[in-house]
Amino acid sequence: MLIERSPLLLQWVTPSLLWRVNTADKEVYLTFDDGPVPEVTPWVLDVLDQYDVKATFFCVGENVAKYPELFQKLQECGHSVGNHTYNHLKLYKTEPGIYRKNIQDAALTNKSSLFRPPHGQINRSMIQWLHAHKFKVVMWDVLPADYDKDRTGQQCFDTVKRKTRPGSIIVFHDSLKAQKNLMEALPLSIEYLLDQGWKFKTLI
């Protein structure tokens, strides 16, 4: 079963994580995971530029090392960046020491204090370690699941349309896996939200 919005109980038991920005204003935070990659990220940047929208990109360190010019362009275009580990590791399948080093390896290429765990996998000890190392852990409020091959771009857009609320953090993916759905859902989502008077902000 797809969970399109992070459950309130999960947010309640992890209050130190940022699931949604606390605001009553019509502000939304568009984020992208897993890039940068040359097949998708430049297209995303063009779309964001077309609508004059800024976003936050949680980058995989390995991709940053492969495509440093693209990573630099993200920042030159006025977007924020965050750490998404070096190899997109799953916490629950990785020895804690290896996972921590993977975060630190990513930090060598990406100095951001923002961190989002791949697949949303996090636990209490890792939260404590991240906070001790001055990372702000960012989760999400709206999950269109553009990476899901069983969904369509229209379904992804419908999720954004139904679930967005003040302060929502929406997560898309600038990845090959999500490319098809993203290319349909992203312009539709931005156009709809702008038409409805929403303002886009970056996480810092």
Rank of each mutant, 00 (worst) to 15 (best):
I98S: 11
P117D: 15
N102D: 15
Q128K: 15
G97Q: 12
S125D: 15
R116L: 04
C77F: 12
E95W: 00
K90V: 00
P96H: 02
N87Q: 13
G78H: 08
Q104T: 06
D105W: 10
F115E: 08
I127S: 06
I103M: 09
L114H: 07
N102A: 12
I103F: 01
F115V: 05
G82M: 05
V81H: 03
R116C: 08
L89G: 04
R100H: 13
S113C: 13
K101I: 05
S80E: 05
Y92N: 15
N87E: 12
G82H: 02
R116Q: 07
H119R: 09
L114D: 04
T109R: 07
E95V: 04
R124E: 08
T94Y: 01
Q121G: 06
P96V: 08
G82Y: 01
K93E: 07
K101W: 10
N123F: 11
A106W: 03
P117A: 12
T94I: 00
G97E: 13
H119Y: 15
Q128E: 15
A106K: 04
Y86W: 02
Q104N: 04
G120I: 02
Q121P: 08
L91N: 08
Q128H: 12
K111S: 15
M126Q: 09
H88I: 07
R100I: 02
A107N: 01
Y92R: 13
Q121N: 06
K93G: 02
H119G: 05
K90I: 05
H79T: 08
S112L: 10
L114N: 11
Q121W: 04
H88K: 02
I127Q: 11
I127F: 08
H79L: 03
Q128T: 14
V81M: 05
S113D: 13
N102H: 06
F115C: 01
A107F: 00
N110H: 09
A107G: 05
N110V: 01
G97T: 05
I103K: 00
E95G: 00
H88N: 13
P118C: 12
L108M: 13
G97Y: 00
L91Y: 01
G97V: 02
L108F: 06
Y92E: 14
N87K: 11
N102R: 02
L89V: 00
A106I: 09
N123C: 07
G120N: 07
I103P: 07
I103D: 09
I98L: 14
L89H: 10
N110L: 14
T109M: 10
F115Y: 14
P118W: 11
Y86K: 00
A106D: 13
Q104M: 06
I98F: 01
R100M: 11
S125C: 06
T94H: 05
S80H: 03
T109G: 06
R116M: 11
K111E: 12
L114S: 04
N83F: 06
G97P: 01
I122M: 02
S113K: 13
K90C: 08
K111T: 14
I98M: 06
T85Q: 03
L108W: 10
N110K: 06
Y92K: 15
K111P: 05
P117F: 03
S113R: 14
L114W: 11
G82V: 05
Y86P: 03
K90F: 08
S113F: 09
F115Q: 09
S113G: 10
L91H: 08
H79A: 12
T85E: 07
G82F: 07
